[in-house]
């Protein structure tokens, strides 16, 4: 008789390593929502997010043998999905459409964004950012990577990472501002 209890993370990983499809499905069920949340943040639209999710999970299952149990499994998966998203746009040559520029001054707008925006709204706004801005913004503001780390991951200079982040901030502020004006 098959038990209904959810196996722990270690058992799930072991099962997936042995190629057990039931364990693979259970691992997917456990992490799919969180990983899709990441994909949506990095993708320009839901179709791209779906592609990144599929490619990311295939990479997780095929590279599971490389996972060192010393760290967090979710953290390891998260890095795979972030890298898959970066690769996705690099393949399409859409990541570096923005030229290197000095950091621009961010326009001053008094908006109480936190009071009015839910996580879903912010994600929707982020998805509207141009690809390069969006990736840098996610890596820096949400994942907490430094500009130096982002520069290495994306194969760009630290200055480009900073300038793209500044532009992303300016762009988002403008959007939040106009959104609040529309509501008001």
């Amino acid at each position: 008789m098959q038990s209904n209890h959810l196996p722990n993370e270690h058992d799930l990983i072991e099962g997936c390593l042995l190629g057990n499809p039931i364990m693979q499905k259970k691992l997917y069920d456990k992490f799919a929502a969180k990983m899709y949340g990441i994909c949506l943040r990095y993708a320009a639209n839901s179709e791209d997010a779906k592609d990144i999710l599929q490619d990311g999970f295939v990479k997780v299952f095929t590279n599971l043998i490389k996972f060192k149990a010393a760290g967090s499994f979710e953290g390891w998966m998260r890095r795979i999905f972030v890298n898959t998203a970066i690769e996705h746009y690099r393949r399409k040559n859409q990541l570096y459409a923005i030229t290197e520029n000095q950091e621009e001054r961010i326009p001053n707008q008094e908006v109480s964004a936190l009071d009015t925006l839910e996580a879903d709204d912010i994600v929707r706004l982020i998805s509207e950012l141009p690809n390069g801005y969006r990736t840098v913004f996610n890596l820096f503001a949400v994942e907490g990577y430094s500009h130096k780390e982002i520069a290495t991951m994306m194969n760009i200079s630290e200055g480009t990472s900073k300038s793209q982040y500044a532009r992303a901030k300016a762009w988002l502020q403008e959007k939040i501002g106009s959104r609040n004006q529309d509501k008001g």
């Binding site: 499809p21 799919a32 990983m35 949506l40 943040r41 996580a119 994600v123 994942e143």
Partner: peptide, 23 residues
């Protein structure tokens, strides 16, 4: 622990079928 970092959304229902066939 910010809300965006842990933001989760249910994936499309046909995603698992595509993943398992790719696998």
């Amino acid at each position: 622990g910010n809300s965006l970092y842990h933001h989760a959304v249910s994936p499309p229902t046909d995603s698992w079928e595509s993943i398992s066939s790719k696998l």
